[in-house]
Amino acid sequence: MLEVKNLLVFYENALAINDLSLRVEKGQMVGVIGSNSAGKTTLMNTLSGLIIDMKIKEERKGGERITIMGEVIFNGEEITHLEPYDRAKKGMALCRERHPIFPESDVLENLKIAGYLIKRSELKERIDFVFSLFPALVGLKHRRAGFLSGGEQQMLAIGMALMIQPILLLLDEPLLGLSPAIQIKLVDAIKNIQKEMGITTVISEQFARPILPMIDYGYIIENGMLTLTGSGKELMGNPEVRAAYFGV
């Protein structure tokens, strides 16, 4: 479903992604694990196309030079240089790091805005569906999203990504800044989404512990390079991984 071939991403002259290749099969849950500044966000932005928009806007201003080499293939189609809004139309949704929702709109309006690509007649049904996934949001319907707690914002952000009816869901550090109890709840919700709706999912994390048990396959990256790959089980048994990413 998704294939990345020999990807290189430079910011100016700094190499953020270095010759990275990966594959995601339909229905899988794939993890990308790396510590701070390993290149997780850069990878997610390259997959979702956000980096293309950043590149174009920087070029216009004569700002930072961003270079992208290699290939991103989605459902057999080369999309390396496609704009993010066109990728969304093809069924790709990204839930950005630190859950940037629309802070001044209330929860309901956030979901309505996120329903931009779907038919008006499907909007209500889709919103109800998101509320059924995250019942905690129902009572907050009319609360301004900027005033929600971190965990609530993250639920909303995932709900918004689901509004576009994605076939591929990219989650950039969804557990960041959440307490362990909330992390467990969210992991359950993510598992449900992937299992029951059959949405292919790529999830990035700093800590391996909460996500290794649920992923089918994992890639460990350091300084933009793959250092280790394997199934969730294999990685879990690996002593190096335990030492570096279990954060005990």
Binding site: S48, G49, L50, D53, E83, P84, Y85, R87, A88, K89, A93, L94, R96, P100, I101, F102, P103, E104, S105, E109, K112, I113, A114, G115, Y116, L117, R120, M160, A161, M163, I164
Partner: peptide, 24 residues
């Protein structure tokens, strides 16, 4: 309206709007 809501989204968080399919 969809366009109006997209306007509001874009005004608040352009990048989030972009990945929801809104051409900024």
């Amino acid at each position: 309206t969809k366009t109006g809501l997209a306007f509001r989204g874009m005004a608040q968080e352009e990048r989030t709007a972009l990945i929801l399919g809104i051409n900024s």
